[in-house]
Simulated scan of single mutants.
Amino acid sequence: MPVYCITGTNRGLGLEFVRQLAQSGDNTILATTRSLESDLGDLHAVASASTHILECDTGDLKSIHAFAKEARKVLGPDTRIDFLLNSAGVNLASWQSSLTLGPDDLAAQISVNVLGPAKTVEFLLEAGLLSESVRILNMSSGLGSLQRSLAAPRKCAGYSISKAALNMLTVHQSGDLRAKLPHVVVIALDPGWVKTRMGGDGAVLEPHESISGILKVLGGLKDEDNGKFLHHSGEEIPW
């Protein structure tokens, strides 16, 4: 019975991950949300009997640490996470360019989009919750590709910068974790332009299309894929 841990599941892509994975009773799911006091009706509606809804604000280090401790209690002493999907993210002040960046907006995006996945991995590793062959997905974006961003139009400067930083985090994690977990595979992944609240107007993909593709990619990952930047179709993306 594989164990999936997914951050940011109250809406958007995180919610769709839970919806698809919960269709199999073989999957144990740790579904996190920033606050258990939020409206979680949609999440409860798709959750299975083996879905555990836990609080984890990925912009708050104390919350991430508390989540790791709670996850240990939920899974027990011998169960490990097989798939860690760092799906939580924010896109703030998308109208800002590199010439008008708001310091607080950029800092908030770095906190959630970069430090959040970094500390989630760190604290789960410290708690002994990651399997030796865990697959870790850091949800990136095509906007985080430096090569693609050379082509105009450029947009969402702060978000793009945070996703480029997440890509570098992925590269570092892919090496650092291999020294501790011999068969770990860490990837950054672009889900495509998806019709979610974050995706906004003009998005072309339905959530179920993106997530079904991502789950297929996850299921087919090999040791040599460690440290890659992939599209939801499985195609490799230039950094």
Results as ranks from 00 to 15, higher is better:
6 I>P: 09
9 T>C: 15
9 T>F: 03
13 L>H: 06
14 G>Q: 08
15 L>K: 04
17 F>R: 07
20 Q>S: 09
22 A>I: 03
22 A>V: 06
24 S>M: 05
25 G>E: 14
28 T>R: 13
29 I>S: 07
32 T>F: 02
32 T>G: 04
36 L>Q: 02
36 L>S: 00
38 S>W: 09
40 L>D: 00
46 V>I: 05
47 A>H: 06
51 T>R: 08
54 L>H: 00
57 D>S: 03
65 H>A: 13
65 H>W: 10
74 V>T: 15
74 V>D: 07
75 L>M: 06
77 P>Q: 03
79 T>N: 10
80 R>P: 04
80 R>M: 11
83 F>D: 09
84 L>R: 01
84 L>M: 10
89 G>L: 03
93 A>S: 13
93 A>Y: 06
95 W>Q: 15
96 Q>Y: 05
96 Q>C: 13
101 L>Y: 03
102 G>K: 11
103 P>A: 14
104 D>Y: 09
104 D>M: 12
104 D>P: 02
106 L>F: 15
109 Q>R: 10
111 S>K: 14
113 N>S: 05
114 V>T: 11
115 L>M: 15
115 L>Q: 11
116 G>K: 03
117 P>L: 04
118 A>H: 13
119 K>T: 11
121 V>R: 10
125 L>V: 00
126 E>T: 14
128 G>F: 08
129 L>H: 06
137 L>V: 15
137 L>Y: 04
138 N>I: 01
139 M>S: 11
139 M>V: 12
142 G>A: 15
143 L>M: 11
143 L>A: 15
146 L>S: 10
151 A>I: 14
152 A>D: 12
160 S>L: 06
162 S>Y: 11
164 A>P: 00
166 L>F: 07
166 L>R: 10
166 L>H: 03
168 M>V: 09
169 L>Q: 06
169 L>R: 05
175 G>Q: 12
176 D>I: 10
178 R>D: 02
181 L>V: 01
182 P>R: 08
186 V>F: 12
188 A>T: 06
188 A>R: 06
194 V>T: 10
198 M>Y: 12
199 G>Y: 09
204 V>W: 03
207 P>I: 02
217 V>N: 03
217 V>L: 07
220 G>S: 12
223 D>I: 07
226 N>K: 11
228 K>E: 09
233 S>P: 06
234 G>S: 06
234 G>H: 05
